[in-house]
Nucleic acid binder design. Structure first.
Length: 567
RNA sequence: UGGGGCGUCGUUAAGUGGUAUGACACAGGUCUUUGGAACCUGGUUCGGAGGUUCGAAUCCUCCCGCCCCAGCCA
């Protein structure tokens, strides 16, 4: 994944690695991305993916594994394994043959558990879940030792074996590490290593009725894989002493856990719980709704893997919890799409424009550039005729000073076509709304250049009424109307901050004919409007559907925002 | 009144005792057959108070604020 370009931004994790390489602690590094297959990946996961795979790509001979952390069969499913694999591939990363599962290590983990029991560092506890909770103490008071804490290694070994053999009912016993019930860190108060759970595992089936907890499985899995730097998010800082304790107790290769702040983005939510609510409560159409921050949602919305990787490169890696401005993401997206998306003309809200001095029945094929940023993308031809559609917003009968599009008596350019001048406005007698604009055109300006060098203030996009194709366009906007919907006021819920205008469907837009057959997933810039992508689910030949990925920067919109009167 | 973290422009991130820097956002401008893109210009912001020092965002002390932890979830 190495790309040429500016050196990657440095951060505290790189400093640690550089130091480890310099001192010879390691000659190379090995990282891993360890998702639990219990849901879909989102933009927050992308940061961890880019960090882990990116680091491995940047350091010589270094590798990053993909490991599914599948220690809880009640929540995990094969479907998620597949979707996660698909999404990481789409993002552009490769783990070659290093696809692992924590469940691959169940036998080894069990063997190690017996080892700790033998060393007197773990014991079988018969307390119920409630009793354990009750005896754990609180944040300010120490816990009480389990009455089974001092069983002999031999008795513990016997009990552990019988736990594995299925002699005891679910939840009746646990294997716990023998550490310190008075520790200030709750994770060290004899944490649970195994629970009895008769649940079918998506990979090991019914082979086990005891399953390791995260704490018991994670560090040991890292060790088995030869991970050198185990990166995780801040909430695991409290677990690091335990991570270290297990590895030390076992006396095996000891990766270093390093915690960093996970990515948060403004105007959206990223917790699995909240995302699930949006889906289950029907706020969005599903996990791949184009408004969702899931990788599937972003993909369907038209975000590119390149823009996501660029975001992850730019946001930095630190321990400070921060919320990244969505505007940065959109900026990076535009930067990418500007160079790659083909241009086309599409009129979202059509207003008829008739050229009174243009012959009826005549059609011209005018040449248009496919991408001004990339001449190699060539040109295409666009049909032009007497009756056209322009954007409703591009005409104002009584324009404010800052508006320099079409208005009565005013001349503008129709892109790649002619200069036209408004000579008449036909209005709906009932509403007074303009329903047809009549213009003259200057034949000498064919193609859009005036031989006499006269200037016009505006260039408008258009489509030929008789040639344009109908299309459905879905205008997407921020899912929430406030930067941090999770920061809900007293009595409020994050859903109270949903943006009611996050989706507006325009069933019948007019697009230039060259767009009629655009393939699903293709990115295109509707000139002067925004970037769009052909929807991968609902778009059909003959009935195209476009999703707005992001608008273009819009100077006029800003002016209107500043002076609400100018409309 | 337990333990673990974090505080640098609006937002992010650099800075590791010697002129506070970049990106996004914002504001102004140049250019333009996209009010796009590109380019130029702008703002003084180190949580607070003391202290050490010729000199502190960096070192010390105290204070304040925010986040995480009491799953047999990860």
């Amino acid at each position: 994944m190495t790309t040429s370009g500016p050196a990657p931004a440095t951060h505290f994790i790189r400093e640690i690695i550089d130091e480890d390489l310099r001192t010879g602690k390691h000659a190379r590094i090995q990282t891993r991305f360890p998702p639990e297959p219990n849901g879909y990946l989102h933009i927050g996961h992308a940061k961890a993916i880019c960090l882990n795979f990116g680091l491995a790509a940047d350091y010589p001979n270094s590798l990053c594994n993909l490991r599914f952390d599948d220690t809880n069969p009640t929540k995990e499913e094969e479907e998620f394994v597949q979707s996660i694999i698909e999404d990481i591939r789409w993002l552009g990363f490769d783990w070659e043959d290093r696809l692992y599962y924590a469940s691959d290590y169940f036998e080894k983990l069990y063997e190690w558990a017996e080892d700790l029991v033998g060393k007197g560092k773990a014991y079988v506890c018969d307390l119920s879940a409630d009793e354990i909770r009750e005896s754990r103490g609180t944040l300010t008071e120490p816990g009480r030792e389990s009455p089974h804490r001092n069983r002999s290694p031999a008795e513990n070994l016997d009990l552990l074996r019988r736990m594995r053999a299925g002699e005891f009912p679910d939840g009746s016993r646990t294997l716990r590490a023998k550490i310190d019930m008075a520790h200030g860190n709750m994770n060290m108060r004899d944490p649970i290593m195994y629970r009895i759970l008769r649940a079918r595992h998506h990979r090991t089936g019914d082979a086990w009725c005891i399953y390791p907890t995260y704490d018991w499985a994670h560090g040991q899995s890292d060790s088995i894989e030869g991970i050198t730097h185990s990166l995780c998010s801040l909430e695991f800082e409290d677990h690091r002493p335990l991570y270290d304790w297990f590895l030390d107790a076992l006396g095996v290769s000891h990766p270093r856990q390093i915690e960093f702040a996970k990515l948060r983005l403004s105007y959206t939510v990223l917790s699995k719980r909240r995302l699930r609510r949006l889906v289950e409560e029907g706020v969005v159409s599903g996990w791949d709704d184009p408004r969702m921050p899931t990788l599937r949602g972003l993909r369907r919305r038209g975000f590119t893997p390149e823009s996501i990787r660029a975001l992850c490169d730019r946001v930095g890696v630190a321990k400070k919890e921060s919320v990244i401005d969505l505007a940065l993401f959109e900026h990076l997206l535009r930067e990418d799409l500007n160079k790659r998306a083909r241009r086309a003309m599409a009129v979202l809200r059509p207003l008829k424009l008739v050229l009174v001095d243009y012959p009826e029945g005549k059609t011209e094929e005018l040449s248009a550039v496919n991408n001004p940023e990339d001449p190699s993308m060539g040109t295409r031809t666009v049909p032009f005729s007497r009756e056209l559609f322009i954007e409703k917003d591009d005409f104002l009968e009584h324009p404010p000073k800052e508006f320099y599009r079409l208005a009565p008596g005013r001349e503008v350019r129709l892109r790649y076509a002619y200069f036209v001048k408004c000579v008449e406005v036909v209005k709906d007698p009932a509403t007074g709304e303009p329903i047809e604009i009549r213009c003259t055109h200057d034949p000498a300006t064919r193609g859009g250049d005036a031989p006499d060098k006269r200037k016009v203030k505006a260039t408008l996009h258009w489509v030929s009424a008789g040639h344009a194709v109908a299309a459905e366009v879905r205008l997407y906007d921020h899912l929430f109307s406030v930067p941090d919907p999770t920061d809900a006021r007293e009595g409020k819920d994050f859903k109270d901050y949903l943006n009611p205008n996050s989706l507006a469907v325009i069933p019948s837009c007019r697009i230039e004919p060259s767009l009629a057959a655009a393939a699903p997933g293709v990115h295109v810039q509707f000139e002067r409007v925004g970037y769009f992508v052909v929807d991968t689910v609902d778009s059909k030949p003959g009935k195209p559907v476009f999703n707005r990925t992001v608008t273009l920067r819009d100077e006029w919109a800003r002016i209107q925002k500043r002076h609400p009167s100018s409309r």
